[in-house]
Structure formats: C-alpha cells, structure tokens
C-alpha cells in the first residue's frame, strides 16, 4: 500500500516551520531539515517534498519517517541563538510530536468527518538531522551545546549538504544571494549587520565549535551526531568544501553548486539516497 505525507504547520514560536507527517502506521523516525542563510524551509527543500513518495526509497525509508522543516532567523540571529532554538524545537518533536500537529483542536468547530481525520500519535526511535550551508553549522553548534545535558540530538545521524563549517567565500556568498530570492538582494547592503554571517566568517567561532566537537568525541563515542556525513558539489564557490577530521565526506557531486547540491531532480537523486543511506 502507498502511504503519503500530510503537511502541518507549527504555531509560535516556530511559525513557518512545518512537518510532513506520514500516514504509515509503522512510522518510527524523524528527519529534521535545517535551511541555510536567508533560505526558507520550502524553497530549500521543496524537491524532497515532491519526490519522497515517488522515489525508489519511498516505501522502504520515507514512508517510515516524518519530515520536519525547521525555520529560524538565519540572518539576524547568531549561530548559537539559532542552535538553541533548534534544540528547543527538537525537544518539542522528539520522541513524540505535539498533539496540535496531529489533530485539530477540540475547541475549533469543524464538520465531524473532518475531525475524524486526526493523525495517530507516534513515537520515534530514530532521528536524522539534515542541514544545508548555514544550517550545517547550526546543527554542529547544537550538537556541542547538547553535550552539556542529555538531548536526543546527540544520538542523531547528521547529514550535511555544502555546510558552512570551514569558512565562506564572501564573493561567492554575495553571488549566491543574487541567485536566491529577490527579497534577499535587499539584504546585501546590510550583510555586516548579520550575526550569522559574522559567525560563519569568524575562524575563531568555527574553531571553537570544531574543537568542542573533536573533544566531545573522545568523551562520548556513542554520540553519533559528533560525526557528520557530508557532501559538496564540484561547482561549490560559496563555502570552503572541507570536512572536519573523521567526518565521512562523500565524493563531490559533479556539476552541482552550492544551491543545487541539496535539490533532487528526476535525473539527480543522490540527495534522497544520501539521507536514506545515512
């Protein structure tokens, strides 16, 4: 039987974050997507949303997973603020998503048959974190913050597309903004006001996250999230395409650039399998 996913929006403080909830009764995992600088959860990941039900891995992998598209103030907020917001978001959805994501509130007057479509409760035993660009650094910062107290992210699998973990190329970065949404162009004059941009550009900040990660690996070998699986495109010119020691870096994807690396197409499905094989 074919299962499908149903979209459901989060309320405050995660407005514009949304979930795709599987109607497979055997769903047991959550995949959380974190977009990049000035990205949005739909534009960055829409190709996943279109393909997960038609791809060869649909029934073996995706129907058993709920997908969460987290959004955050990727321009204004610093990486640490965004990482803490991500950790709070994860606490909200893992191991079980909140009721208001699954069901219509009893206080809303709706036709009876509509009320009967509520999704059943579910409990996840698996978590995969997927990040693009700034989202990759946000995830890695969240992982090291979580080392101070037990948190589900520690045992997640981490998959990163062109993560900004080893520096950014300012010229390429501006070029990328010009290729993105028109509203991003108007951000260009204010780039220096962006805490996130400053953090991504700061070798000191990145080194701190990296060193904290490497140190934590020696203490908690069971914390899978300290190691990432990552990939860059051969046309990457926005971030420095360098992994951290002992990360699992896949061969570069030929012909893909910073933006296309995470967008599966009918003739480019590695992003889908890359996650499914994590």
């Amino acid at each position: 039987m074919g299962y499908t996913h149903h979209y459901s929006w989060f309320g405050a403080p995660y407005v514009n974050s949304f979930a795709l909830l599987s109607d497979d009764p055997e769903v047991d995992g959550a995949v959380v997507f974190v977009h990049g600088f000035l990205g949005d959860p739909h534009e960055t990941w829409y190709a996943f949303q279109d393909m997960i039900s038609s791809h060869a891995t649909a029934q073996t992998y995706w129907s058993k997973r709920d997908l969460f598209f987290f959004t955050y103030r990727s321009f204004r907020n610093g990486i640490e603020t965004s990482a803490r917001s991500l950790l709070s978001f994860l606490t909200l959805i893992f191991p079980s998503p909140p009721d208001d994501l699954l069901s219509i509130s009893a206080s809303v007057s709706v036709p009876a048959s509509l009320g009967s479509l509520n999704s059943p409760a579910r409990t996840y035993s698996r978590l995969v974190m997927v990040g693009h660009s700034e989202g990759g650094l946000v995830i890695r910062k969240a992982v090291v913050i979580a080392e101070t107290a037990p948190h589900p992210i520690s045992k997640a699998r981490v998959v990163l597309f062109a993560p900004a973990i080893s520096g950014v190329n300012p010229a390429g970065f501006k070029g990328m903004l010009m290729q993105l949404r028109p509203t991003n162009w108007i951000a260009l004059p204010f780039l220096s006001d962006s805490r996130a941009y400053r953090d991504m550009n700061s070798a000191e900040f990145r080194d701190d996250v990296r060193n904290d990660t490497l140190h934590a690996r020696g203490v908690h070998k069971e914390h899978t999230a300290l190691w990432a699986k990552l990939v860059f495109g051969s046309k990457e010119d926005v971030v420095t395409p360098v992994k951290w020691p002992d990360d699992n870096q896949a061969p570069e994807e030929l012909g893909q650039n910073h933006l296309s690396i995470c967008k599966p197409k009918s003739k480019y499905d590695p992003p889908i399998t890359f996650i499914a094989q994590s």
Partner: peptide
C-alpha cells in the same frame, strides 16, 4: 493532521 484539516483551518477558516 491530515492535509485537508490543515488546509481547512489554515486556508479556509481564517
């Protein structure tokens, strides 16, 4: 939530 529920409370009702 079913997509029809989300559509109804998110796009029709407001």
């Amino acid at each position: 939530m079913h997509r029809l529920q989300e559509f109804t409370i998110g796009a029709i009702v407001p």
